[in-house]
């Protein structure tokens, strides 16, 4: 399956096709609408229960109701909690004292509680996939990115390569682990465990193109309703990673949720790196060679 990876970079064909799957099902993914998330963490537990992901430590973090801190080898779904002194739309929050629209009302106090379920983005151009030297990480026929645990030798290269900080090495096991978008369930036509468990349908699973249209409609609906903060994150196929397989509707800046504002897959700059490396190698050779030219005593 080693087609020319640089070709993949340039044309934005469907990632599964680029990875060599000929007739493959349409690319599927997640659209997570955080405006209807109630922070119940059913997704975290359902994912762990289906995939037998081990529990990773009991510590009270004080980060509002988030005690699992972030995505990693033992947390494939992570719910973020952000308490802000701002108002969502025209929500009346009792203790609110200022009038008028949302905004940083200085003379009073509104409260809102953003909740968002984070997951692997299954990027169109996945840095983890690109840098994996053993080919353990591969593109599935569904367009998702999965680690083959029988091949991964724990080299750890994918971990710093991922611009979102999703994949990680599992202590004691040595291998890299991350969300597989329930590749086994997709195989039998079932939806991923987290999407099924989500009580308010904040996690929506489906064909990616349909999800993108639905997200656009949802965004328009929210903007018309006066919720100006709403924005889509990872929906645009033209962005730094070629669009995400799992994209989001957020209600604030991505970094407030712990997401990079403008992630770019490192492979984009790789060609230039190789050119620079080659010239450095030649320079080195030249340098060493030159140091022998002068007639020395």
């Amino acid at each position: 399956m080693t087609t020319n990876p640089f070709a993949q970079l340039l044309e934005d064909a469907d990632p599964a096709t680029a990875a060599g799957w000929t007739d493959h099902p349409p690319r599927v993914g997640f659209f997570t609408d955080t405006s209807v998330c109630i922070g119940c963490k059913a997704c975290e537990v359902a994912c762990k229960e289906w995939n037998h992901v081990p529990e990773d430590g009991l510590r009270f973090t004080g980060m509002s109701y988030d005690n699992t801190i972030g995505l990693g080898a033992d947390t494939w779904r992570h719910v973020a909690f952000i308490e802000q002194e701002k108002r969502i739309g025209r929500q009346v929050t009792g203790a609110a004292t200022s009038d008028g629209d949302r905004g940083d009302d200085d003379d009073g106090h509104a409260v809102r509680w953003l909740m968002s379920s984070d997951v692997c983005k299954h990027c169109t151009h996945a840095a983890c996939l690109d840098v994996c030297p053993t080919g353990a990480l591969f593109r599935t026929e569904f367009g998702t990115v999965v680690v083959q645990e029988d091949i991964c030798n724990g080299c750890g290269y994918c971990i710093p390569a991922c611009p979102y900080g999703v994949i990680d090495q599992r202590r004691g096991d040595g291998r890299a682990w991350k969300c597989t978008l329930c590749y086994d369930r997709l195989g039998v036509g079932a939806e991923p465990a987290c999407a099924k468990a989500c009580p308010t349908n904040s996690i929506q699973f489906g064909v990616l193109d349909e999800l993108r249209e639905r997200a656009d409609r949802r965004l328009a609906q929210l903007h018309d309703a006066g919720i100006g903060d709403a924005r889509l994150y990872g929906r645009d196929p033209e962005d730094g990673v070629g669009g995400d397989g799992a994209f989001f509707l957020l209600l604030d800046e991505p970094e407030v949720y712990g997401l990079p504002p403008d992630p770019v897959v490192t492979t984009r700059d790789l060609p230039q790196m190789w050119r620079r490396t080659a010239s450095a190698a030649v320079l080195l050779a030249g340098l060493v060679g030159a140091s022998f030219l002068r007639r020395t005593r």
């Binding site: 209807v36 109630i38 922070g39 009346v92 929050t93 009792g94 409260v111 509680w113 909740m115």
Partner: peptide
């Protein structure tokens, strides 16, 4: 309290 229910409520009355 302002709870996860209040987060989804249009009006929260403490």
């Amino acid at each position: 309290r302002y709870t996860r229910t209040s987060a989804l409520a249009d009006i929260h009355v403490p």
